[in-house]
Design a protein around this nucleic acid. Structure first.
Lengths: 127, 127
DNA sequence: TGACATATATCCTTCCTGGATATATATTTA
DNA sequence: TAAATATATATCCAGGAAGGATATATGTCA
């Protein structure tokens, strides 16, 4: 039995897994504007629309630890506000520089994507 | 000992692994123009610049089998040209439809990326 | 005949994601 | 005041995709 399915369904299922979500640059961007912490980032990372809804907590904390290990951010505990302690993250100069590399990358990538789309349009027009 | 490294190095190492390569839509696009086969696709897929150099053969053949299983392409053996037999792939109407979904997705994604870049420019300007 | 180009296929390890779960602290509500 | 909820961080595990290496086979050219 063949495995044929409705194309848009196949696409959305596949897309939901493989789509680039740009977690790291989004965190760097938010921290460039102001310091923040995991729980807040989980709620705010959706503003760039690469992630729909709330981001999975495990992924954000995992990224933050990795980024701190790489020296892109530094953190300190904040306990004076009531409620559970927060680990406040701040961007480092290395993190700032990596963000600028991300921007360069995104510009190159959008150019390639737009060329790909244009190639498609020409193909449809001529075919 | 901390794990600080040179930012552009960290970025290029990370980028080479996580970058979106758009193998499936690239194959669909080539097959929309004409039929082709694995070995030829490996050499031609670089034209869209999502993949630099030759694509890893294992990945292309893996994608082709998966895409045939999904009904996006069909194949037949061609042995009348001398040299090893080629498995010629042809786009199906389902594959054509999935490619158009890919184009829609890429348009949405580029919009988000451009908005992200613009957000960065504003931040740099005001900060 | 030996090397090389063409051509497909499979295997294995590593890495990342998604999702679930655990833990702990305040605040609100009943 | 006890229970439920919101806040907040952290860890674990299964599944899947990528990268890279390797195997196999055929024809051509020196």
């Amino acid at each position: 039995m063949s495995n044929k399915i409705i194309p848009h369904k196949q696409f959305s299922e596949m897309g939901s897994k493989k789509v680039e979500r740009y977690i790291q640059p989004s965190i760097l961007m938010i921290l460039k504007e102001k310091t923040s912490y995991g729980y807040e980032l989980i709620q705010n990372i959706g503003q760039f629309e690469f992630v729909q809804g709330n981001a999975p907590p495990g992924m954000i904390y995992r990224h933050l630890r990795e980024m701190e290990d790489l020296g892109l951010v530094v953190s300190e505990w904040k306990t004076d506000e009531g409620g559970p302690a927060k680990r406040i993250y701040r961007l480092t100069s290395e993190g700032d520089e990596v963000l600028s590399f991300w921007i360069d990358y995104l510009e190159r990538q959008t150019k390639k994507m737009l060329a790909f789309i244009e190639n498609y349009r020409e193909l449809v027009k001529s075919g």
